[in-house]
Amino acid sequence: MSTPRTNHTTNTVLAAQSDARAQGNLLAHVMPYVPADTSPFLPNDVPAMSAVWAETVQGGGYAHRIVARGTRIRFEDVSGDACAHLVLFNADAPRERLNVADTQKVFWQAYPTVGHPLLSGEGRVLATIVSDTSAHHDAFAGPVSSAQAVQRFGAASAESASPSGEALFGLAASKQGLSRRDLPPSVAFFQGVRVESDGQLRFTGSAGPGSIVEILAEMPLILLVANAPHALDPRAEYTVSELRIHAWRDSATTRDHARWRVTPERERAYSNTQDYISSRGIA
């Protein structure tokens, strides 16, 4: 019978060292690829030299990262059951963070897709959605809560088989020196919701395997990503599949870009962002 002990010889320091080092080049189904250009899944259209982050996040797992302004981040729903819950912070001053209410209200639109800026509460664009083959997203209901995970799946903690969004975001936040006080409502990619005229929330699920969403960092960002089931996902089993992330150096939205002036609200939002970037001394 195979046990964790099988095939390990660790009775001396040298043996233990050899045993540890022998594990170094193994591959897992879910893992970061470091450096990023070694990712076996690097997209064909991504110049290897520009890659800065490559990772496959497990279902029920999380990721966190600081990225520079101008970084383009691609999320891929590999198997069709990923749900990327995302919170963004200004890496310089994390009290500035994603504000979902402003993101919907300022642009008069409940359903973010290509071109929609993700706003902070400071009237600036943290990131812009620049690609979307899914169109199944949600800025209303968020991930499964701890109370809901315990009730439906028997556990909610990160080490359990059914981590809540709160458990995952909590750890991701801690890694960045942030706490639960710093966590605002999130946006969810790859699992959709529509609002009926009476307010009823209708879960529309996923667009299927291979869908991608890309966001462009318009400021230096801390990203927290929780890959957890959507709160309205009705499936009896805790269901969430792996999420793939690739990021590479690109260019932030500037005044000469058509995206800058699509609407008066967007033009002022990008102007406010540029105003901050210029005065902060970021290129």
């Binding site: 209303f140 209901a141 968020g142 991930p143 809560s145 701890s146 109370a147 809901q148 809540s164 709160e166 639960r180 966590l183 409502p185 999130s186 609002v195 009476d198 307010g199 009823q200 929330l201 709160a231 309205l232």
Partner: peptide, 27 residues
């Protein structure tokens, strides 16, 4: 207060009599 947990639990974006305002921990 967590708007997400509150409206997810009642499956409706608006609040009416009986609505329970839930916290970020879900209580």
């Amino acid at each position: 207060y967590s708007v997400q947990h509150t409206i997810a639990a009642q499956r409706n974006a608006y609040l009416r009599t009986g609505a329970v305002l839930l916290s970020n921990a879900g209580g």
